[in-house]
Amino acid sequence: MLELHDITAGYDSRTPVVRNVTLTVAPGEAVGLLGPSGCGKSTLARVTALLHRPDSGTLLLDGEPVRRWRHRAPRAHRTVLGVVFQQPRLAADPRLRLTDLIAEPLRATGRRDEIPHSVGELAAAVGLTPDLLDRRPHEVSDGQLQRACLARALVLRPRWLICDEMTAMLDASTTAALVAAVENYRAASGAGLLAVGHDQLLLDRWCDRTLHWDDLAVGAKTKPDQPTR
């Protein structure tokens, strides 16, 4: 289970962006989190991905409380969560070719021997052709770059996937392809998903249940995890 209990987080402790949010994702479950822009969804996603320390509250990864964030978090905690960010341009190091971008987590965790096999397999899974893999981020489109970013998030075979507005910048066909790639991975691996977005139609069709930000944030203590359908 991926459990967030009573999480309060933000960039200034006097005015937190996320207030008392409680949320759980079961293994294999897809949870959508719906909210208007600027409400704090992305901050919650960053807390869940161990990238931002919350001001208060607990995060349990398979029952084990997380005490440290970012570099201080144990590598095993960080790599069990895969993250896809909203803007692929900002989420990709402009100096790396797409193949190095996808392989970077394997290099960082000392698993170089898996690179040839994993990169080829994932590139095919997200729909990247071999000629695109030799290009740098400025030589590909946003959609192609987001495919590479999804492949990078999947390369360590995470048990939890966090997609923060993964398809907000993309056209319908790329959105469909990316969602299909995520679903194929989840079907094969049984990974849980937290999909953050503001497109209700998409989240309703993609996820097992969709939570509204307002229900989470305001009445979190009285009605946690209110499903909308």
């Binding site: 993250v83 987590p105 965790t109």
Partner: peptide
């Protein structure tokens, strides 16, 4: 965000 992505990737 690409530094966040690297941290998340275990760097």
């Amino acid at each position: 965000p690409y530094i966040d992505a690297a941290v998340s990737g275990g760097a």
